[in-house]
Design a protein around this nucleic acid. Structure first.
Lengths: 214, 214
DNA sequence: TTGACAAATGGAGATGACCTCCATATTTTC
DNA sequence: GAAAATATGGAGGTCATCTCCATTTGTCAA
């Protein structure tokens, strides 16, 4: 797919400088207060060069994001090889919050960029989603986790955690979300229904959207 | 707080026109492809007038959002008055997805704007959060729902649903999130722990962030 | 080493969106 | 119906974004 060309020496150097500065500025959270041109200057690079390497803010974000995702995927794989499936899942999700907490500015920035309708990042997170899918699938196979809710739902919730930066009580609430997810994923004992009735019956029906009330 | 002045007749008319057009364009999803100036023209209003009424895109969004939130809060109150607490909560959350599904473009637009670091909207959703908080609190009082996870977590997850527009299988996944939330909220039977151990013990400790993992 | 070709750089300047300002128009009040 | 108050609209200033190309830097063969 990506036929990566050998890239000349100085090009590589500048590119690296840009990425490094980007990670730094992302983490500080100052990315949006910065003129893109000024960012170039800050990284010791001309405007043209910046644009040559990263045509848009999103492209830059994507590159940074890739690193993040790769690290998380590694971690997922390591956990899956070490722990029983459901524990691996738990550890991964809990760790995810830790990670976001430690790099709040970055998570914040990425979530913001993600929300801009540039599905560029969605593409980048494909790998992450695969990792989560694997974790969930393993836990399902192990029998500890229900099989009627896909990993996509978990991804959505994670997205919510990332996007809800600037909530005053972010950490506690993020942990809360994970707790609910994990508790919710646990295979129901016998009584399928939770409480009350779903507004629309659509358990095994992913086609027709029901345009019910308000 | 907001000392609403009587507002002259023509002003009211223009304002209304702007809001109507806004709702329309939001719902179509074309809001971001539109120069703000052109939006004014589209609503049959001069640029100056647009800016007088809504100084920023976000201000406009907030106004539209207010209507949405009010409707949802009404619905929450109605449900709470009609149904047992846990059923009311279920119905509300399920209905929320229905609503987002029916007005996907609008939800999309709002979520995007929400993510731009303009906590203007966060302010606007205060009321919605209060409604959810009330629903959860009632369910807790009724004994059907755990009391160690606040409504904030639910808000986060909802935010995730809204923000994760443009997922190909959005509807099913959104339903999945709600299912997990509801199942997770159900008061645990006896075994508190879900599966495995949380990476950091912090159940009654909202202060120190643990910079663990990855 | 040197010459020649390819690749990359950087910053001056065009572009175009955003927002302000104020002369004119509309509404309200007395 | 006239004056005072309030609102309108669009021409034009401002400023971030991005393009273009003359110049510099790196690579490779002889």
């Amino acid at each position: 797919m990506t036929a990566d060309k050998p890239l000349r020496a100085d090009a590589r150097r500048k590119r690296e400088a840009l990425l490094a500065k980007a990670r730094e500025v992302f983490d500080t959270g100052d990315f949006f207060d910065l003129r893109f041109d000024d960012f170039a200057r800050l990284a010791g690079v001309g405007t043209g060069t910046l644009y040559r390497h990263f045509p848009t803010r999103e492209a830059l974000a994507e590159a940074v994001y890739h690193g993040e995702v790769a690290a998380l995927c590694d971690r997922a794989r390591r956990l899956q090889a070490t722990l029983p499936a459901s524990e691996a899942l738990t550890a991964f999700l809990r760790g995810m919050v830790d990670h976001m907490d430690a790099h709040k500015g970055l998570a914040r920035t990425l979530a913001t960029l993600m929300a801009d309708r540039s599905s560029v990042l969605a593409e980048g997170s494909r790998a992450l989603e695969q990792a989560v899918t694997d974790l969930v699938a393993a836990a399902v196979r192990e029998g500890a986790v229900r099989d009627d809710v896909g990993a996509g739902a978990v991804m959505m919730a994670l997205h919510g955690i990332g996007a809800a930066h600037d909530r005053p009580d972010w950490r506690a609430e993020a942990d809360g979300v994970i707790t609910l997810l994990l508790a919710g994923l646990r295979r129901p004992h016998s009584d399928q229904a939770i409480a009350g009735t779903p507004s629309t019956r659509r358990d095994a029906n992913s086609g027709t959207p029901a345009s019910a009330g308000v």
